[in-house]
Structure formats: C-alpha cells, structure tokens
C-alpha cells in the first residue's frame, strides 16, 4: 500500500474513532479554562431566607431545627446542625448528589440556604479530563493523546500541491506554532 494512502486511512479512521473523545476533552477543556468565571463541576445556588426563631434561641434543639426547616420548605432534609459561631446556626441538609446547608443569624432570623449539586454532563466530562478515574483510563487517555499527535502529523500530508504542506499548509502550520511561543514569551 502506498504511504500516502496509508496516511489518509490512518487519519480518517483515527478521526472517526476519537470524535467523541475530542468533543469531551474540548468541551471540558473550555470549562476548566474558565475557573475564574465559574465552577465547572458544581452548580451552587444561594437563596436568602427569613425564619421565625424559637422563643429561646439560646437553647435550640433538634425539634426547633426541624421546625425551622419545615418553615423554609426543607422539611425532610435534616442532616445535622451545629453552632459555628455565637448567634449563628448552621444546618446541614440532605441533597441528592450534592450538599446543602442553612445558615441562620440567631439574632435576626435572617439567613440563607446554599446548595451544591453536580453540574450534569460537565461533571462527568471533567472527571474524565482530569483523569480522576485513573487505572485503565490513564492508558486509554494516553493512547488518545498519542493518536492526536498522529492525527496532527498525518493531517499535514493529506493534500498535495499549493494547498498542501509545501504551500499554504506550511505557513498555517508555522503560524500555529508561533502563536503559543509568543504567548509563552508574553506570559511565562
């Protein structure tokens, strides 16, 4: 088989096979690239509440806590409570696939409910991208990375003539290498 034909077949088949992986890593890469702007793994919600405090807020017990939860629509979600600081009550909530808490100022009754839930799809993609799975995934993702290198190099030699690597392909490839080098010079 000619080398050019083998190159095209390799590029084509690796491209087909790893389409899913490329999309997973690209989307999670964008997500993880913007850690300053958002939490790519969790959806964090905060809701302000005002509760009616028990008569003697200095000696709150579990029943009082459960009543507070019922008043704010979290009746069946009690997990635990404690007092992180004087005049502050914190109640941990049961949340499916996440966590939650209620923080109450025992002087005013003002507070907030904070809940954390897994961000669907992104949580799973980030799990793979970060190699949290380890074990076999380490090997498979290494194979994927090597395949991307093969895809990149084989792609250089797909076309012939002035649109190939001897023509505009060369300029585009050089530009693509120069940009990260310039970024390194600027920011490293």
């Amino acid at each position: 088989m000619k080398l050019r034909k083998l190159n095209i077949i390799l590029h084509r088949d690796l491209g087909y096979f790893f389409t899913g992986m490329i999309i997973i890593y690209s989307l999670s890469g964008i997500a993880l690239n913007h850690l300053n702007e958002w939490n790519p793994d969790l959806i964090i919600t905060k809701q302000e509440v005002k509760v009616k405090l028990p008569e003697n807020s200095a000696s709150i017990n579990k029943q009082d806590v459960e009543k507070i939860l019922a008043d704010i629509g979290e009746k069946d979600n009690y997990k635990k409570y404690y007092f992180p600081k004087k005049n502050t009550l914190k109640i941990f909530l049961k949340v499916s696939h996440g966590s939650g808490s209620v923080n109450i100022d025992l002087k005013t009754g003002n507070g907030y409910i904070e809940k954390l839930a897994r961000r669907p799809i992104f949580n799973e993609m980030n799990f793979l991208h970060r190699n949290n799975a380890r074990k076999l995934w380490t090997w498979y993702s290494d194979i994927f990375a090597l395949s991307l290198i093969i895809l990149a190099i084989s792609g250089l030699f797909i076309l012939k003539g002035k649109k190939g690597i001897k023509g505009r392909g060369a300029w585009l490839t050089i530009a693509g290498i120069l940009i990260p080098l310039i970024m390194l010079l600027l920011y490293y």
Binding site: Y82, S99, L116, N131
Partner: peptide
C-alpha cells in the same frame, strides 16, 4: 473535619486512590 469545637478544624487531603471527596459528605 470538626470535633466539639467548630472553630478548630482539621484539613484532610486526598491521596492518589481517592481522586476527590464527594461533596455530599458535608454534615456526615
């Protein structure tokens, strides 16, 4: 982790076998 004094907390870092802790552990 906290004990009876909520202001004295002990940090726990995951090792290689636990890539991350489940957030639902809060309160447990």
């Amino acid at each position: 982790l906290m004990g009876t004094d909520p202001e004295e907390l002990i940090k726990v870092e995951s090792g290689d076998k636990i890539e991350k802790f489940d957030v639902s552990l809060e309160g447990n």
